[in-house]
Design a protein around this nucleic acid. Structure first.
Lengths: 327, 327
DNA sequence: TTGAAAGCGCTAACAT
DNA sequence: ATGTTAGCGCTTTCAA
C-alpha cells in the first residue's frame, strides 16, 4: 500500500536521459536548458510523479521550509484572536500545497528585536507579519527581502496586503448616517496600530460632511474593552445614538455593555462592527458589520512570500457592508 | 545586524573538543556518551546558541519537517470550524518551538484513500488527525507509526487525545436535571463521528436514572443545523424543556431557532452547549456549556507526534460545566 | 547547453 | 564510549 520509493531527481534524470544537473535546471526553471531537454525532463517528471524534496532543497539553498506567521501585540493573547485563526488557517492551506508548513509567533510590541531574531532563525522560508508597525518592519534583515509580506501596513521593502479600511469604514458610517444617526462614536484599534489610521480618517470625514462631532475612543480589539468603552461613551456623550467599533469582537462587547446599561439596540443606540466574524450573525441583535476577505488576503500574502513574487506596494481588498439588526 | 553565521554541529563539536558524531549523539540524546562529553557538548551548545538545522536532520532521517493537521469531514467547510482554528493555532505554537511548521488538510469522508495519500507524501514529520473514524485510521501506512496522533478516537496504533465526553455530558445533563428539567433533548454530532458515542451514552444514562425519555436528534456541529433541529424538536416533542447540543455553535443555532419560534430561553426551554468557544459568553442569553482544554489537547497531540513519544492508548481531558444564563 | 563534482548540515553504520 | 566514513536529495560552480 505504501507503494514504491518516491522518485528522486536522479530517477528523473535517468528516465529523461540527461544529467541530474540538467534535470534540476529544468525543474527549478533556473538556468539554461534546450527545448529538447526541457520536454524530456517534463515528461519524466510527469511519468514518475516526481515531487522535489523540500528538505533537501532547503538544505542547499539555505532557504527554509516553513512559513512563519508573526503577530505583533502587547501580550501573547493576540494569538487567540479569531482573526489570527483565520489568517493561519488560510496560510496553512496555501502552504500545504507547496509542501511547507506554517508556524505561529507572537512578537511583543515592546521588544523591537523580536522580529529580527525570528527572521534570523534558520529554516525560515518566508514571513508574514500580521498587524505590523513600520518600525518593526524596518528590522527585517536584508537577507529576507522578497520573502516577507505584511497583512496590514507595509514599507518600501515589504509588500502589504490589507483591507481597504477607508472605504469599509466609509460604508459603515454612511449607513449609520443614512439611517438617521448623527451622534456617532467610534471605538478604534490600539493606538500603536497604524493600519487603523485610515479608518479613523474616513470616520472623521463622514462626520464632518454630515455635520457631526467626532467621538473617538481607543480600543484594543477585545470584547471586554468593548463593554468598557460603551460605558465610557455613554457617560462622556450621553446623547450618543450610534457606536461603530473597528472590530466585531469589540462591537459584541459593546452590545453587552449597552445591555447592562439598559440601553436598547438598535432602538436607542445603533451598533456596528467590522470584520464579519463567524458569530456576527449569531448575536442578539445580529450585528451589522463590514465583511472582508481575510482568507483571500492571507492566501495572497502567503503566496507572494512562498512564490517569491515581487509584489511590492500595497494591495487593498474591498470591504462590504452587511446590514443585520443592530444598525 | 544579521549577526555572524549560525553555528553548525561542527562548530559545537570543535568547541567541545569531540567528534561531530559524539556531538550529534549528545544533542539528539540517542546513543551512548560519557558524562564528560555530555557536559562539554552541552556547554558548547549553550555558548554558541546552537540550534539543529531541521532540514538537514529531516533529509538524513527521512523524517519530514512539517506536521500535518488533517480534519475529516463531508466538505472542506469543516476547516472553517472555530474548533479547528484552535487546534491549528495550538499545534502551530508547539511546532514553532521545534522549528517545524504545520499544514492543514481536509480529508473527505467518502474518500478512504485520502489519508494514505497524505501520509505517503514526503516531508511529513508527523500527522494529527482531527475527528477521525477508526477505518480511516487503519489506512495510515506502517511507516508513519509512532508519528500519528488522533484528536478524537484512536486505534491500537494511533494514540488518542480527547475530551472526556462522557463525564462532560454527564455534568451538563445532570445540571439540567438538578435545575428541574426532565424532558431533555440532545443534538448529537454527525452520525459517522465515533467520538460522540460516549456522550450519547452518558446522556441516555442520566435520563434513565432520572426517569426521562431520550430524545436524540442528529446534528452536524453547525449553527444552521442547530436552528433547524430546534424546530424539529419542538414539533416532535412540544413539551421539551431543555436542549443539550454537543457543540456550542449548534447550541447558538438552537438559541436562534427557539427565538424565532417565540420560545423563551431559559424560561420555557433551557439550552446548553459543549466546547465553551470564545463566543459562548457573549450570546444572549449567555450560553451554559462545558469547557474543555482544546489547546492543551492539541498541544499534547502535537508533542507526542513531534517528540516520538510512544504514548499509546487514550488520554482523556476533563470537561467542566460552565453555568451562564441559558440553563 | 550540458555534465562532473563538490557540498549544504546532519545522522547512522561501522570500526576502534 | 568515541571517531571515521558514507551518504540523505538537491543546487551550483566550473569545465567542457
Amino acid at each position: 500500500m505504501t507503494g514504491e520509493r518516491t522518485a528522486t531527481l536522479d530517477d528523473v534524470a535517468r528516465a529523461a536521459g540527461v544529467s541530474r544537473a540538467t534535470a534540476s535546471r529544468v525543474v527549478t526553471g533556473q538556468g539554461p536548458a534546450s527545448p529538447r531537454a526541457r520536454d524530456r525532463v517534463a515528461a519524466a517528471v510527469a511519468a514518475l510523479g516526481y515531487v522535489p524534496d523540500a528538505s533537501a532543497r532547503a538544505l542547499v539553498t539555505r532557504t527554509g521550509t516553513r512559513l512563519a506567521i508573526a503577530v505583533i501585540g502587547h501580550t501573547a493573547a493576540v494569538l487567540d484572536d479569531p482573526y489570527v485563526g483565520r489568517v493561519l488557517t488560510s496560510a496553512a492551506h496555501v502552504a500545504a500545497e507547496r509542501e511547507v508548513g506554517v508556524s505561529l509567533h507572537w512578537l511583543p510590541l515592546d521588544d523591537p528585536g523580536s522580529l529580527a531574531r525570528l527572521a534570523d532563525g534558520r529554516g525560515l522560508g518566508g514571513l508574514v507579519v500580521v498587524n505590523p508597525t513600520r518600525p518593526a518592519l524596518e528590522t527585517v534583515p536584508r537577507g529576507l527581502r522578497g520573502r516577507v509580506a505584511a497583512v496590514g501596513v507595509g514599507t518600501r521593502h515589504v509588500p502589504s496586503f490589507d483591507v481597504d479600511n477607508r472605504a469599509g469604514t466609509d460604508g459603515v458610517v454612511r449607513h449609520l448616517v443614512r439611517t438617521g444617526r448623527r451622534r456617532i462614536a467610534m471605538i478604534t484599534g490600539p493606538s500603536w496600530l497604524p493600519c487603523g489610521d485610515r479608518a479613523v480618517d474616513a470616520y472623521r470625514k463622514v462626520l464632518r460632511d454630515s455635520g457631526g462631532e467626532p467621538r473617538v475612543v481607543t480600543g484594543d480589539f477585545t470584547a471586554a474593552r468593548g463593554a468598557e468603552a460603551a460605558a465610557e461613551i455613554m457617560v462622556r456623550w450621553p446623547d450618543t445614538d450610534a457606536v461603530f467599533a473597528l472590530s466585531d469582537l469589540t462591537a459584541l462587547g459593546v452590545l453587552d455593555g449597552l445591555h447592562a446599561l439598559g440601553v436598547r439596540v438598535p432602538g436607542d443606540v445603533a451598533v456596528a462592527g467590522f470584520d464579519d466574524i463567524a458569530f456576527a450573525g449569531l448575536s442578539r441583535p445580529a450585528l451589522t458589520t463590514s465583511t472582508h476577505p481575510v482568507e483571500d488576503i492571507a492566501a495572497a500574502a502567503a503566496q507572494a512570500v512562498l512564490d517569491r513574487r515581487d509584489t511590492s506596494g500595497a494591495t487593498f481588498y474591498p470591504s462590504a457592508l452587511v446590514v443585520r439588526d443592530s444598525a
